[in-house]
Nucleic acid binder design. Structure first.
Length: 660
RNA sequence: GCCGCGUUAACUCAGUUGGUCAGAGUGUCCGCCUUGUAAGCGGAAUGCCGUCGGUUCGAUUCCGACACGCGGCUCCA
């Protein structure tokens, strides 16, 4: 038997080794139980992979990104096997790993109910206990078609092989560009008990799945197109240990606890009256305080950054949106027109066309550029009923929308200015961790985008350059551009690591053309400006919701609807506290004195549940010393603080926008 | 928009296989209590059981449509 030379990559470097021909990858990692697959070159392989001369091999640990994907993909197989054992008529769709878990799609007569999921989960546990082997077998199109004659969706995938990425998101997990493979599940006797078309790789056996849980079922369109049939999708999660699973489930609980829809109700911030309609929020007094503070802040900041505050109406004749080019592209998401006096009027879905009219209301000189217009533009979009979600996806909202009109030469500096400005805004609201997303044109769908190749290339390059300068991570988003130009969006991570899309900067060379915008240049002739769209919050409503979730409702003092709740130990201390409260009110602080006839402990509980940052307590001891006592939301106490110092402390916390 | 599930007091949620089935806790209101860091005690009021239709002797309960919500899909200028 001849030997072959391979290289093993470890944390300590690369190690050359000579092994016998026929050696399989698992033999290299017998000492390491965490390794569940091998990376050979840049490809992931099963541990049963037979090494060939010149291979560079690295063990893939289950607790790595690739390792978890493999685990989850294998778990999806177990799910599918369990479903077909319980529901033999179920036809298989696709079953890829996803963030934090996996899913598998099935075509079944009757949708799954929660009790079905319990049954399926129990069967999955049995399959895992069976210690079935995932066995890879190379096949070809013709043989596979015969074998999978009863699986119409798999047959369809075979036909699409090679263009799997286009076939459906996740379909590449089933069929790769190369050879076609089937994985057989072998029981202890080596008999095939189940099989699935799949490119792999997989765990060696089902028993290597340490922890999983089925989460929910829902419908999903086959191959992601609403023109296709809806399949039943079962979602699950799987982890390298029971602890990791528990941790993930806790994260979900934490997310539920922070749900802004729930907090909005509990803290009496906003509601969605049925009588008004879906996706149309009303802000209650306390939510109104937060919203107003946000607006005051961002208005002031725009003025400081050289913007002029403007105002435009909520409806317009539809011709305006034809001029801008929006109507043909976004007719579906605009409310139907209302007709009167022989004219169609549209609810405003975007502000830019109106700002363009402000630009063109008189002649413009290059000396005025960049001309920066800003407003809280209230827009209405006909979002499909199924997508509306709390404050983050609504039908009526305000954008903190700005448009900078500038020369082509000024554009890069203006984009940079806007991006930096946006980041300072987000940081002031306590968000610290960002990355950028660059949304570009999909060259294969040019009919969805307006403008010449050259204009797109220039615009995209300007944005890419500025993004690079920020030093932030940049994630490409091909095809995500607006029809009129590419955009950069800022994604912010919240307190529990979730990312949210915040503001955007968009480079637009199309609307200036459509509106015939012009300025007179230094050479005395007319030129076309470019416009840079930008929203810092994106939408006030969405940003409000994100902030609520980020802070779990415990807003920093400058944003808190009630900054101080004054709590008397006994009724005789009420006037004393009113006196302090009055001094604070005079400084613009939001203070309430709780003079209800609840006991003082109950008042503390109430203030705590309302997540008020400062509880200001006073009893005989405090009155005697001319002091008050603070209690904070985390239970921390600070007793006997002299009144003047107490006022200063609250004032300083508000001014610095710090969290307490 | 599509699929599935849901809607009972201001809030959270029990309940009825169609016939004293309108319930609890919280909140609210009225008394009493006057209190040192997360719920003091007692009493009272509050519901077209989402809306509209149908089946039935009888519907909060069964069926349908609609509205609104939830989880996904699709979509997010």
């Amino acid at each position: 038997m001849s030997d072959i030379k391979i290289a093993i990559v470890t944390a300590n470097g690369t190690e050359e080794r000579t092994v016998e021909t026929g050696t399989r990858a698992w033999q290299l990692f017998v000492d390491n139980a965490d390794v569940i697959a091998a990376r050979v070159g840049d490809q992931l392989k099963d541990l049963s992979y037979e090494l060939v001369d010149g291979d560079t091999v690295e063990g893939v640990a289950m607790a790595s990104k690739d390792g978890r994907d493999i685990l989850r993909h294998s778990c999806a197989h177990v799910l599918a096997q369990a479903v077909q054992e319980i529901f033999p008529e179920a036809k298989l769709g696709i079953g890829p790993p996803i963030d934090n878990g996996f899913y598998y799609d099935f075509d079944v007569e009757t949708p799954f109910v929660p009790e079905d999921l319990e049954k399926i989960e129990a069967r999955m546990k049995k399959i895992i206990k069976d210690n079935q082997k995932f066995s890879r077998r190379v096949t070809n199109d013709d043989d596979a078609r015969v074998e999978l004659a009863d699986e119409p969706y798999k047959l369809e995938l075979i036909g699409l092989k090679g263009s799997a990425a286009e076939a459906a998101e996740g379909a590449s997990a089933e069929v790769g560009a190369g050879e076609l493979t089937i994985y057989d599940n072998l029981n202890r006797n080596g008999e095939t008990v189940w099989k699935d078309l799949c490119r792999g790789p997989h765990l060696p056996t089902t028993k290597r799945i340490p922890a999983f849980k089925l989460m929910r079922s829902a419908a999903a369109y086959w191959r992601g197109s609403e023109k296709n049939k809806q399949l039943q999708r079962v979602y699950g999660t799987a982890w390298e240990s029971k602890e990791a699973l528990e941790e993930y489930l806790h994260l979900l609980e934490e997310a539920e606890r922070r749900d802004h829809r729930k907090l909005g109700k509990e803290l009496d911030l906003f509601s969605f009256p049925d009588e008004i309609g879906s996706g149309l929020p009303v802000f209650h007094p306390k939510g109104g305080v937060i919203k107003r503070v946000m607006e005051d802040y961002v208005r002031q900041r725009h003025i400081e950054e050289g913007f002029s505050y403007v105002g435009t109406p909520h409806i317009t004749k539809d011709g305006l949106f034809h001029t801008s080019g929006h109507l043909p592209y976004y007719a579906d998401t605009m409310f139907p027109p209302m007709e009167f006096e022989g004219t169609n009027y549209q609810l405003k879905a975007m502000n830019c066309p109106m700002h363009n009219l402000i630009f063109s209301s008189r002649g413009r000189s290059y000396r005025e550029l960049p001309l920066r217009l800003f407003e809280f533009g209230h827009v209405y979009r006909y979002e499909k009923s199924g997508v509306i979600h709390g404050l983050t996806r609504v039908r009526g909202f305000a954008q903190d929308d700005s448009h900078s009109y500038c020369t082509k030469e000024q554009a890069p500096a203006e984009v940079k200015h806007l991006l930096n400005f946006m980041l300072t805004v987000l940081r002031d609201f306590g968000l610290q961790d960002f990355y950028l997303e660059l949304s570009t044109r999909d060259d294969s769908k040019k009919d969805k985008f307006v403008g010449s190749d050259e204009d797109w290339a220039v615009a995209t390059q300007v944005l890419a350059d500025v993004c690079a300068e920020t030093g932030l991570d940049l994630v490409p988003d091909p095809g995500g551009a607006a029809f009129y130009g590419p955009k950069v969006s800022v994604q912010a991570k919240d307190a529990i690591g979730r990312t949210w899309q915040m503001g955007t900067v968009q480079y637009d060379f199309n609307q200036p053309k459509g509106f015939g915008l012009e300025y007179v240049g230094p050479d005395g002739t007319k030129h076309q400006p470019v416009m840079i769209h930008s929203a810092k919050f994106g939408s006030i409503e969405r940003f409000f919701g994100v902030l609520l979730e980020h802070y779990a409702g415990a807003m920093p003092p400058w944003l808190a609807p009630v900054q101080v709740t004054a709590i008397p130990i006994a009724e005789r201390h009420v006037d004393y506290l009113y006196d302090v409260a009055k001094q604070m009110n005079a400084l613009g602080l939001r203070v309430e004195v709780d003079e209800s006839d609840d006991r003082m402990q109950k008042k503390i509980r109430n203030a705590q549940l309302q997540k008020v940052p400062f509880m200001m307590i006073a009893g005989d001891d405090d009155v005697e010393k001319g002091a008050v006592s603070f209690r904070y939301r985390d239970g921390r106490q600070d007793n006997g603080v002299p009144i003047a110092e107490a006022i200063e402390r609250v004032k300083a916390a508000v001014a610095s926008r710090e969290q307490v």
